[in-house]
Amino acid sequence: MIDHSLYKEASIQNRYITNAMLQKCFAALPSTSIKEIGQSVHKTPIRSFELGTGGKRILMWSQMHGNESTTTKAVWDMVNFLRSDDVLVQTILDNCTIMVVPILNPDGAEAYTRVNANQVDLNRDAKQLTQPESIALRKLFDDFKPDYCFNLHGQRTLFSAGRVEKPATVSFLSPSSNAEREITPTRAIAMKLIVAMDAMLQKLIPGQVGRYDDGFNDNCVGDTFQKLGVPTVLFEAGHYPKDYERERTREYIFLALIEALRTIANDALGKYSTGDYFNIPANAKLFYDVLVKSPEIINPNLTAGNAIGIRFKEVLGNNAIRLKPEIIDIGNLEGFFGHQTFECADSKDFDLISSQTEILDLVLHAED
Rank of each mutant, 00 (worst) to 15 (best):
V164Y: 03
D85K: 10
V87S: 13
Q131L: 06
L173W: 03
E110Y: 11
C149G: 02
Q63T: 11
T184Q: 11
K56W: 00
N116D: 07
V101R: 00
V87L: 07
N80Y: 02
P146G: 09
L158T: 09
R163P: 06
P167L: 06
T71Y: 01
E50W: 02
P175V: 07
P167S: 14
P132I: 02
F81Q: 01
P146E: 09
T130N: 12
S176W: 06
G52C: 07
L129G: 05
L158Y: 09
P106S: 12
A136S: 14
M64I: 11
Y148H: 11
R156E: 10
H42T: 12
E182S: 15
S176Y: 00
L104S: 04
P45F: 01
S40C: 12
F81C: 03
M64R: 07
C96L: 08
L137F: 09
Q155R: 11
K43S: 12
R47I: 01
N178T: 13
Q63A: 13
A168N: 07
D143G: 05
A161E: 05
D77I: 00
E165N: 14
S171V: 06
P185D: 04
N151C: 05
E50Y: 06
V87Y: 02
L137N: 13
A109G: 06
T44G: 08
V170S: 14
E165Y: 00
S69Y: 07
T184Y: 05
A136F: 00
N116H: 03
M64D: 07
I58G: 01
D142I: 03
N178K: 10
F172S: 09
R57T: 02
R57L: 06
N80R: 14
V120A: 07
E180H: 12
D86M: 04
D85I: 01
L82E: 09
L88S: 07
N67V: 06
A126K: 05
D85F: 03
P106I: 11
T70G: 00
P185W: 09
V120E: 10
G108C: 06
P146A: 10
K127G: 10
L59M: 09
E182D: 15
D143S: 15
F159I: 01
V101H: 05
C96W: 04
A161R: 04
N123D: 14
G108M: 02
V170T: 09
R47L: 15
S174R: 08
R156V: 01
Q128H: 13
L88P: 02
V101K: 01
A117D: 08
V41A: 09
T157A: 03
A179T: 10
R57C: 03
V100H: 02
V164K: 14
L129Q: 13
I183D: 15
D77P: 09
C96T: 05
V79I: 09
V164D: 13
A109T: 07
N95Y: 01
N118V: 00
I135C: 13
D142N: 15
A179M: 03
A74Y: 08
N178E: 10
Q155P: 05
W61S: 09
T169G: 05
M60E: 06
S69N: 15
V79E: 02
T186W: 14
P185G: 07
D94M: 08
L82N: 06
F144V: 09
L173R: 10
L93S: 11
L93D: 06
